[in-house]
Design a protein around this nucleic acid. Structure first.
Lengths: 225, 225
DNA sequence: ACTTTGTGTTAAGGAATTGTTAACAGGCAG
DNA sequence: CTGCCTGTTAACAATTCCTTAACACAAAGT
């Protein structure tokens, strides 16, 4: 099996070198581009397995690069991880809905970078088991519409509540600790108190009734089988 | 289950004590070092789960400590959080990008410290796809679900009872002393009277019947083979 | 038979965990 | 700007669980 190739696009040579160094240690093949134009060319020539894309670059910024790549059928499915300097750029990425697979805020921690890369690659290797629709008991949980249906009733849950429910329902029967839920639903680098989970569980119960999510004291929560 | 160990390296005794105090409240085991040299030694000796590392220290500063640790394969994967006194040090960390997992600027807010620590630890927690199910006799003891099944019957045991049963069942045939059980199920440094084990055994028997756990007088308990 | 030792059993606090509510900040729409 | 919605935290109430101590009982030793 040939090496996994990763393209890094950033206008700072230092960062390019640093990332290359670390990725090569992990056994990846690395391509580098110093601007968007060059990046797009390399993508088309080499079809890398993943792209690390800096947002803030002179001339053509990362968002535009992403946009153009997504419009080219032959490369549109290559996963992209954005590198953002500030949190508000992160917001921008989310807002634009460009199909980013992840984003990492600078300063870039080597291990964070590697774990994200591996996570994204894993996601793409596996034939995508997520149906986006989960049917459990009398509920239909539809991630495409962020809607929960029970018979004719429709429930519009707020985002976090929905995602929590979706995650739990997708692993029904398993007890998931608050830590795990925070990690998976809230994300790696969100700092919230674990009791926040409790409040969301309570709200879900308030809306749907409390016969879906069970508490396992001292351990966590579980979607009833 | 043994505690998570955190090493704190800082040249100020006050800060060391303050952090130790707060971490212990949260149930962490804490190691302290007043300088880089000592810190490195403690890392190698104890392999802590996480390192809090002050940047500005006399003799060997945090950056160098980090650098050295990263070069030692046996400890290079232990996550490090830097403590920085000023923002420009933060910049330095960004620039060097030594593989820090996070950094916290002083003065340290307890809450922020704890949430960062937990976030970093979460990140390192393995994907863990294996199931933890023990089948013995007519029982299925499922740690993912925290449930015990016998045919169609399901038993939801309280945490301690479940963990005790799980531990015993995982070593069926072996006689385990109360002391051993306390150490393994309750934890290394929990002070409880050993007769507490008896009470839990009694409760397990009450629920599942007394043909699973045998008493070996003067020695301990054993899960029947 | 009687003492000693070890375990079974029970119930009563107390400790630990979760449920619930309210308050607040930030974002967004009108 | 105002008001609503969401997400978060903190405080307190409610609940469950854990631990302890006391006594009963059984087996082994004297």
């Amino acid at each position: 099996m040939s090496k996994t190739t990763i393209l890094v696009v950033d206008d700072e040579q230092d960062i390019l070198d640093l990332i290359e160094y670390n990725l090569r240690i992990e056994g990846f093949e690395v391509l580098k581009a110093e601007n968007g134009q060059e990046g797009i060319q390399l993508v088309k020539d080499h079809k890398p397995d993943l792209i690390l894309l800096d947002i803030m670059m002179p001339e053509m910024d990362g968002l535009e690069v992403c946009d153009r790549l997504r419009k080219d059928e032959t490369v549109s499915r290559i996963p992209i991880i954005f590198l953002t300097a500030r949190d508000d750029e992160k917001t921008e990425v989310e807002g634009l809905n460009l199909g980013a697979d992840d984003y990492i805020t600078k300063p870039i921690s080597t291990r964070k970078l590697l774990s994200r890369i591996k996570a994204v690659l894993r996601r793409y290797e596996e034939p995508e088991e997520e149906t986006h629709i989960i049917d459990v008991h009398d509920l239909r949980i539809d991630k495409d519409r962020y809607l929960v249906k029970r018979g004719e009733e429709e429930f519009q849950l707020p985002r976090k509540e929905f995602e929590l429910l979706y995650y739990l329902a997708g692993r029904k029967g398993r007890v998931l600790s608050r830590e795990k839920l925070l990690n998976k639903v809230w994300g790696d680098d969100v700092y919230v108190v674990d009791r926040t989970v409790d409040v969301h569980v309570r709200k879900i119960r308030e809306r749907l009734g409390d016969h879906y999510i069970e508490t396992v004291k001292g351990v966590g929560y579980r979607f009833k089988e």
